[in-house]
Design a protein around this nucleic acid. Sequence first.
DNA 1: GACTTGACTAGAC
DNA 2: AGTCTAGCCAAGT
Length: 121
Amino acid sequence: MTFRAAVLDLVRRIPRGRVATYGQLAALLGRPRSARQVGQVLRGADGAIPWHRVVNAQGGISRRSRTASMMTQRIRLEQEGVVFRRGRVVLTRFRWGRSAAAGRRRGFVESELIGSRPGRS
DNA sequence: GACTTGACTAGAC
DNA sequence: AGTCTAGCCAAGT
């Protein structure tokens, strides 16, 4: 099993509405230091791979080509119900392997996250 | 083999 | 909270 095949295999397992980080996937593959390589593999992922469910450690969408298709990734995630906050995925709630309840405990509520920012003006 | 190239990251300011 | 830096390593030349 090549590294590339293992990565694609793992990404296929990320369920709808959840995201994983490059580093997280690398760690799950037993190579905690290979986050960059995970991204490299995703560079050549086709439509059969839910590549949009992979974001960086900050919950942000990493840029690839100069001509941004970054919007596509964000839109796809939002269509699956993933919520962004200040341009980043709310990892505490949508990270693959973490319970959604864990993030909710922090006091966030869907309506608060989508609208204007509370406590910030 | 010896470079080069990055869909990355943790740590330091 | 942003911005930089150094280390990372599979793949491609």
